[in-house]
Nucleic acid binder design. Sequence first.
DNA 1: TATGATTTGTCCGTATGTATA
DNA 2: CTATACATACGGACAAATCAT
Lengths: 136, 136
Amino acid sequence: MSIDPYSHTPVYVQLADLLRQRIESGELAAGANVGSEFRLAQEFGIGRDAVRMAIAMLRSEGLVTTSRGHGTQVRETPQRRQVELAPGSSVIARMPSGGERRALQLDEGVPVLEVHDPAGGVEVLAADEVELTRPA
Amino acid sequence: MSIDPYSHTPVYVQLADLLRQRIESGELAAGANVGSEFRLAQEFGIGRDAVRMAIAMLRSEGLVTTSRGHGTQVRETPQRRQVELAPGSSVIARMPSGGERRALQLDEGVPVLEVHDPAGGVEVLAADEVELTRPA
DNA sequence: TATGATTTGTCCGTATGTATA
DNA sequence: CTATACATACGGACAAATCAT
């Protein structure tokens, strides 16, 4: 699989799709380095801009994390703990605000669950650590 | 509030934080234009790259939408319909893959709800249109 | 401790295409 | 038709953070 610069789909989308496939197939395992921007640009014969945009896409999907001087790694997906949705409560999923992301130490691309209990209380949970359940 | 190019936090993150605050405080209301990339770059004395990355971050958080020739607007907060979580089912929230986002025609920054019913069926819902409930 | 290599962050320039006002 | 504005894409250059030696 390679990249077609004459395709209607943008080069950076093609690269993001390609890397996403490598991640989901396990070819790039959790913790693995995706490769430097320079190396990816050379490997696929594209510019660094396109590589950066592709990586940014994967970050916003919660698939990778990037740190300066270190590179981009495939995110470890934490074990989800089961949380029972209490009777009379409701929940919405959304992206966290900047303050929430820092307070909960969330990576980019990780949604939050906003749980409202009948008493009016609100709890915000990292969505990638939780599986909501309702007993049969 | 302004931007410190010598801070250890990237300029584009600082700009995203600043604009996010203006949006959440209501200073930039729903539907309002956040200003062109060129104007923002000049106003804060930063480069195009940083502005574009900041806007891309806000898009990936579902706060704004961008359209060609028109600019970037603050996103309207969507109406949510109530969906009852059926007994014996479970749900996780995550960001959609690129293919899912295209298939479901989701804006950037909109999580999905993956609902598993007891029979083994799976349903994927746009998280910004749904409020999950469990009756008392 | 210090130095250099690697990698991302940021700036800038240029170009073409497309959608909107 | 023109001007504005974003989308995509290439290129170069330097700064700053991290890591290995």
